[in-house]
Design a protein around this nucleic acid. Sequence first.
DNA 1: GTTGATGCAAAAACTTTGCATCGTG
DNA 2: CACGATGCAAAGTTTTTGCATCAAC
Lengths: 149, 149
Amino acid sequence: MTSQYEVLTNPLGSGLHQDGKRLTPQRLKVLNLFENIGAGNHLSAEEVHAELLASKAKVSLATIYRTLRLLVQMGFLHELELSEGGHRYELLSNDIPDHHHLICIRCGRTEEFENDNVLEAGRIAAEKNGFKLIESSLNVRAICPSCST
Amino acid sequence: MTSQYEVLTNPLGSGLHQDGKRLTPQRLKVLNLFENIGAGNHLSAEEVHAELLASKAKVSLATIYRTLRLLVQMGFLHELELSEGGHRYELLSNDIPDHHHLICIRCGRTEEFENDNVLEAGRIAAEKNGFKLIESSLNVRAICPSCST
DNA sequence: GTTGATGCAAAAACTTTGCATCGTG
DNA sequence: CACGATGCAAAGTTTTTGCATCAAC
């Protein structure tokens, strides 16, 4: 859709090499997993670990934690704030439009949606403050039909 | 000192009694703390515990965890997952306008802003899906001037 | 009086870290 | 061939739970 994520262009080449960071098989595997699993999927560290083991890629849990933190700080992944029990992550990429979450505060059910006005608001806020935009996401907390009885 | 009591009785009285939930001194104390500490403050469970102990209110950590979860599910508190190491909570109230965060993914610096279009987007998304809206917050991830070198 | 809530302590879940070794750049 | 990254296991945090007791309704 858009190409607003300058930071993400040429990800593996320029991104992972900044600050003397190294491109390792483990990091590639984690990133590939997120790419293959698609947008809309929210994985915990434990799940990333399980997925990699299932695909015969042996990466330690400790490395996964270290890698997830790194990828978040580099802008490749987004740490979500919608679940109970542990953090979850999702891929950010040029190919995936920014999307937003409608979250039920009772059962945790989530629906995704897109909205250009929201993205525009994020763009403006970043620009006003001299920040370089990476991504915007709106969290709408609400109560779903099944929980509102 | 009388006013703070009134503020608390109203929401808890109507909210807490649904589903046979009970209004206990412990729950009042937790909500009271959030009321007094103000809107922009983000407390962890551990900090809530410490604050209550400091004010001579003895509430166990286990109860604080149970209470925080309850208050989130009832829409009185908002659970933030932006910080490393544990969840943080902030008060939601009609007196406080929904606000949004511009967050530097490198250093964590944040700027707050408001935007009516964003709130409208949240309202529409909730309505479309049959959810009952509680609150919307936009997180804009970006890189701040000092970190973009 | 019922039944939900609390406190305590133990357990579980989640995340980080020290250190020897490995491998990218 | 230096220095960042990894794996492992141990330690550190954070959160949940079982159970007896207590108290709100």
